[in-house]
Amino acid sequence: MFEDVRDLYNATILERGRRPRHMRRLEAFDATAKGDNPMCGDRVQVWVKFAEDRSIAATGFDARGCEISKAAADLMVEAVAGKTADDTKAMFAAFRTLAQTGACEDCAEALAPMQPLAAVHEYPSRVKCATLPWHALIAALDGQGASTSE
């Protein structure tokens, strides 16, 4: 049973959702923001530490939500490591396309860490679970304290 959900609940997502590698609050951080999906109650907070060149040196998060939102946050941390704010925003735009449609031309390489979530487009009510941590990250980069995936 449930073999047909393995496209979304694949080994990577299950592992990252259950045992996230980057779910921690950064002791020293330059930016932080919360993400809130008021439709379902999922909450996430993201902390970011910048390098001297303002690229992302480290990201940590805390998430209260489903496997998808936690796995998305965990994979996001790896995807944005070393990226600038502009790079990160472009990646989010691409990831949204990927999450909503399952395909994203010209972004396969940059978004490789997020590919395990590609099937989420088959689950429209879950797309916002996958994008919530990105909303929080972008809000942190923009110096806003809060965001929503509503």
């Binding site: 449930f2 609940y9 109650g41 489903c66 998808i68």
Partner: peptide, 21 residues
């Protein structure tokens, strides 16, 4: 399992429940 994950899997079995707050 989180409530949303429960609901998604139940949905795949044709069962409609609600999950959230």
């Amino acid at each position: 399992a989180h409530a949303h994950d429960i609901a998604t899997l139940l949905d795949r079995a044709g069962i409609a429940v609600r999950a959230g707050h």
